Computed example of a mutant assay.
Amino acid sequence: MKKIIIASFVLLGAFSCKKEQIEPKAETKVTYASFGDKIVADNALTKEQVLEKYNSLKEGDTINLKFATKINEICQNKGCWMTLDLGNDQKSFVKFKDYAFFVPMNAQNRDAVVEGKAFIEETSVAELKHYAEDEGKSQASIDSIKEPKKELKFLAHGVLIAK
């Protein structure tokens, strides 16, 4: 009798254990707001791939490409420029072709896809100070800008920003 009771408990325990079935998560489709020319997110390079491409450029070179990354900063006056994260404490300064469109000023830290021309250019002190003002930096921070700076730049003709 003891054996039957023990066997019953063992069987009851085995069948009462709920086995959790893990289902693969459905891939979530990112929806984007589009600015400028219509582009698609497909086949965009990663920030690491783009940084490699920038590292192969010298001043005066340009390369057409499309890449996806996060937005760091946006002009707080109009949304007329933004900086994009390239990793390794590098960023790309993005303007929009022909000043034809702007992006939302509250899109920091969102994913973005940009398509256009990458290049390296020296930015003057006056322009650096202007961008610092647009970004809302302190006067002390603006006054500390004393030298021009070589920057990784990008002229976008189309931008997608994750909603």
Rank of each mutant, 00 (worst) to 15 (best):
N109P: 06
F101G: 10
K66G: 05
A100I: 07
N77K: 14
K91G: 07
V113S: 13
V94A: 08
I71W: 10
K129W: 02
K91W: 06
T69A: 11
D98G: 02
V94W: 01
E127T: 11
L65W: 01
A100K: 15
I71Y: 10
F67Y: 07
N109I: 04
Q108I: 09
M82A: 02
F96C: 03
T83Q: 07
A107F: 03
M82Y: 01
K78Q: 09
E59N: 01
K70A: 14
A118Q: 04
W81A: 14
I74V: 15
T62V: 13
K78A: 05
A100T: 06
D89P: 00
P104I: 08
K117I: 01
V114K: 06
A68Y: 06
E135T: 14
I63C: 02
E121K: 14
N77F: 14
N109M: 13
E121L: 07
Y131I: 07
S92E: 10
E133W: 03
P104M: 05
V94F: 04
T123A: 07
I120S: 11
N88G: 02
D61Q: 04
E127C: 04
E121R: 12
H130F: 12
T69Y: 02
F67P: 02
N88E: 12
A107P: 01
I71S: 12
N106R: 12
V125S: 00
A107Q: 02
A100H: 07
H130W: 02
M82P: 01
E122H: 08
I74R: 11
E59I: 09
N106D: 15
V114A: 08
F67G: 03
P104E: 01
A112C: 02
R110M: 08
N77W: 08
A118P: 03
F67C: 00
E133M: 12
E122A: 10
Y131M: 06
Y99S: 15
T123R: 12
